[in-house]
Each structure stands twice: as C-alpha cells, then as structure tokens.
Design a protein around this nucleic acid. Structure first.
Length: 372
DNA sequence: GCCCCTTTGAAGTCG
DNA sequence: CGACTTCAAAGGGGC
C-alpha cells in the first residue's frame, strides 16, 4: 500500500498568484525566517536551498479549473527558481526552462499549451524509486524529468547526473583529456570559487568585455571578496557546504587526495621541493621596470630558469639517491655546482642570494655564448 | 594541448 | 598543530 502524498508536496508547482511568505522577489525586503526552520536569518529565498523545500511545502493545492485574479489558471505559470540559486551550483543541479521553453522531453512537451497531468500514485512511486533500482550506468542513460522546483533528493539526482557534463569550453578540453586517462572527479567548489563563478561576468561587463587576463579578473574578484560583507560571504559558504555535501553523496569514496599526484615519491618531492623556497622569479627579483635583467623564460611568462635548473638537479639528486639506496646522506650527493648552490641556499639568506646571482649570471653567459 | 598567471578556501601531507 | 602544497574557475597567450 502506497502512502498518500498530499498534492501540495508535489514539486514544481508554485502559483505565481499565490502569496508565499517564503519567497522573496528581487527588490523586496529579505524574508523573515520562520522559527521552526534551522535557517540563519541572513538567508532569503534567493540563495537558501532549505527555503526552496519550505517553498514547496507551502505550495497550495492546485486548482486546475480555477482562475486567479490575473485570469490565469493557478497552476501556471510557475515561479521559476530564483536566479541566484540557478547560478549557484557548479553541478547544474537542475534545469529551469526559460520563458516559452519547455525542456521536458519531446517536441510535444515543448509547446506552452502542454500542461502535464498531476502525478498519480504509481507515478509518484515510480519517481521515488526509479533511481534506487537502477545501476549506475543505466542511471546515467535515463532521461531526466526535472521539476521546476526540485526536492532536495531531486537536486541530488540532478547533480549526480549532470556533474562534469556541462563544462566550459576551456574546461571541456581539460576534462575530456583527463577523463580519457581515468575517471576524473573534480573537487567541489569552495565559497570563493562560487563567488568567482557568479561575479566574473559582472566584472567583464563592467570592463566592456575587454580582453582582461583571467589573472587580473581574479585579482579584482579577490579584492571584491575581501570587501564583501560577512553576511554576503556566508551565503557562499553555505552554498559551498551544500556543494560539498552533494559531491560527497555522489562520490562517497572520493577524496581530495585522488586529484593529487599519483606517484607518492613525486608528491613527496613536491612538498620538499627546494625550489618552493627558491622560486623567486625574475619579475619578483628585478621588478617589471627591469625586464632587461629577466631570464628568457620569465620574459615568456614561463617557469624561471633558476627554478628549472634547481628542479632538474634536485630530480637528479633524488634519482641518484634512489639508485644508491638510503645509506648515503643527501649532503654527500651535492657534487654539482647547482647542488652546492642548493646547499648554500638552504643555509643563510645571504648565501642564498649569492647562489641565485651565480645561477642567473651563469645563465646569462650561456645565453650570450649561444648567440655568439 | 600543456602550462602560466591570479585569487581564496578546502583538504591533504609532513615534520 | 603549523607550515606547506595542490586543486578547484577562468581564458588569453606562449610554446
């Protein structure tokens, strides 16, 4: 025997003509958070997913034949999910059809005249249980019926289906490559990344879509983030928390370390990579006004020649250490000039500076010889 | 097609 | 536990 589901719990049906105290249209004052919901008062409908659920719960019974004050049937048009929520999730949690566009399935369903029948008991049961009965692969191939205002479960489902499937142009290349190599799962976005994602377009618009380097945009976004109020930031932290939870639900076995270098020796090397302490690029050392002193790699915005040399020698050192075994000490292997420079660099700031100068001058001489 | 730049935050690693 | 590293987004540009 299936439980009776009240019609007002059906997702996606929120008459625009009904007054809903949980919904804030843009331009209105923020909502008052009801005392029975564990929702911080700083959140309003535009960003809080819990409130989406409460919005559903507050959805009145549809009156199929009744006309509202506007003369429209009360079950249409539905209130689209607030813009802010639509933008928030990097997983494209749900798909909201734009005005005049019905994205549910075939051409027939795309017509504005097509009003779907309310779900009967079996359809509700089917909707509730279909996902759990499908294998993962089959699941991905199933068509998605997306409610206008989803349940949290539906949001999780949509997230699971759509994660990594709508990458940007640049991301697409990278993802495809990685996905060919392995079943690559990306990290969930943190609060700042969500902030960037939402506000990058604004910064671009303000600058007339000039070709601003992404680095410069992010500098500006970083500045704006620091200027953002605590309350505003909290929205993004809350969204990041939800993103993380959705990610965890979808990939319970995934860990951030999965995206770290597979070779533990290599990863370990990175952590102890002395170039991390010596990676002062020519720009930092000489300044932009002294570009003439920069090495050719820094001029090409590449890794500084110094870092390259030190990294190379360090890798050689690691290799030789590995082949010799662990009986010898690292200091005894410092037989090359760069190794010596490394050892010096790790001793005092002064000697470190000298070693840098030596390395750079050596590089300049070599380049001059090349030219000659 | 890879890497760099640049930002902040989360999470992992290491001593 | 603190210090440090890597990776999330973005896209132009160099190689």
């Amino acid at each position: 025997m299936l439980p009776t589901v009240p019609l007002y719990l059906l997702p996606g049906v929120l008459p625009m003509t009904q007054v809903n105290p949980f919904y804030n249209f843009s331009g209105m004052d923020p909502m008052m958070t009801p005392p029975f919901l564990p929702v911080p008062s700083i959140f309003n409908m535009q960003t809080n997913l819990i409130n989406v659920m409460s919005m559903q719960a507050m959805t009145p019974l549809p009156q199929p034949n009744a006309l509202s004050l506007t003369g429209l049937p009360t079950i249409i048009p539905t209130v689209p999910l607030p813009e802010a929520i639509r933008k928030k999730s990097s997983y494209q949690i749900y798909t909201i059809p734009s005005a005049g566009q019905q994205t549910l399935g075939n051409e027939k369903n795309r017509t504005a005249k097509n009003i779907k029948k309310p779900l009967n008991a079996f359809m509700l049961f089917n909707k509730e249980n279909r996902n759990t009965s499908l294998e993962e692969n089959e699941y991905d191939q199933m068509p998605i019926l997306t409610p206008m205002v989803p349940t949290l479960e539906a949001m999780k489902t949509e997230s699971a289906n759509q994660i990594d499937t709508i990458p940007s142009t640049v991301q697409r290349v990278s993802l495809n490559r990685r996905q060919k190599k392995e079943n690559y799962i990306k990290k969930p976005l943190n609060a700042f990344m969500l902030f960037i994602k939402e506000n990058r377009k604004t910064v671009l618009e303000e600058n007339g879509y000039d070709q601003i380097p992404a680095g410069e945009i992010n500098k500006e976004l970083g500045r704006r983030w620091r200027e953002t109020s605590h309350e505003e930031r909290q929205k993004y932290f809350e969204l990041a928390r939800i993103e993380k939870q959705l990610h965890k639900d979808k990939y319970p076995e995934w860990s951030a370390k999965d995206n770290y270098p597979k070779n533990p020796k290599k990863a370990n090397k990175r952590i102890h990579d002395p170039t991390q302490h010596l990676a002062e690029m020519c720009r930092a050392r000489f300044g932009i006004e002294n570009k003439a002193k920069w090495c050719k790699y820094c001029l090409q915005k590449k890794k500084c020649i110094l870092s390259r040399e030190i990294t190379q020698s360090y890798e050689e050192e690691i290799t030789s250490e590995t082949s010799r075994g662990s009986t010898e000490t690292a200091s005894s292997s410092a037989t090359t000039p760069t190794d010596l420079a490394l050892n010096q660099a790790s001793s005092t700031p002064q000697s470190r500076e000298e070693s840098l100068q030596t390395s750079l001058s050596t590089n300049s001489e070599a380049e001059e010889e090349e030219k000659a």
